[in-house]
Design a binder for these strands. Structure first.
Lengths: 114, 114
DNA sequence: CAATTGTATTCCCGAGGAGGAATATGTAGC
DNA sequence: GCTACATATTCCTCCTCGGGAATACAATTG
């Protein structure tokens, strides 16, 4: 389970939609995801297989159903990967702060209510 | 600049390597990235174009050089996208906490300072 | 057992995209 | 101007990967 696997997996719009659906609906069966996504069943199963390989979802067998749910491990790995760049956008804020303290006139004042 | 653009862009290993190189080296020219990455110049320029479209990098013209640097906006957008799933891995911790409070013997006690 | 439902897998096809080579554009220096 | 260097773009090829249809596997029901 590397961040690379996760980022490869989420680099596809329909897989991101499935993640969003699982987030919104909670644990779901394949049929429910087919219904909710508009994709066909084989496509959903294939995407879920990729997501499983990236530890973004996990499965639980329940009779002839398979219940899928989000797996926090992969999601957190990707979050951390982007978090490692946090200094980049922190630097942006620092620059903005510096601009403000150097020349406050650069910033538009809030519109005043009458 | 949507999170989708960013995630599509980082869904490619060499682009992730370029982001890592820019993070490690700071602002760099194309030639320096060619040298550091082992990729050929046209490939680097093409990847940088995609990264620019996703607002992951920005450019500054400097004579016949073009200096590229990371752009915090795209990076932060992706970070936030994954952050929207934070409840998923928080739920994992909550489950762990519950285990701990149910049976403290499961967790090794902290070593006490004398 | 057969029939039905839920899911996974296989095979094929086509679009997209990454890499290579060559070329175009732009800029500096003589 | 011409030449050299830095970068961007074009064209082509190959290959990965997503979608569709059909099929295989699994589990429930009668």
């Amino acid at each position: 389970m590397s961040a690379a696997d996760v980022l490869d997996a989420v680099g596809e719009p329909n897989r991101r939609r499935l993640l969003g659906l699982l987030h919104h609906r909670g644990e779901s069966t394949v049929s429910e995801l087919v219904e909710a996504s508009g994709l066909r069943q084989p496509q959903v199963s294939k995407h879920l297989k990729v997501l499983t390989g990236a530890v973004l979802v996990s499965t639980r067998a329940d009779g002839r159903y398979r219940r899928y749910r989000l797996d926090g491990r992969g999601l957190q790995a990707a979050h951390d990967w982007f978090g490692s760049f946090e200094d980049v956008w922190q630097a942006r804020f620092d620059t903005l702060d510096e601009l403000v303290s150097t020349d406050p006139g650069l910033v538009q004042p809030e519109e005043q209510l009458p």
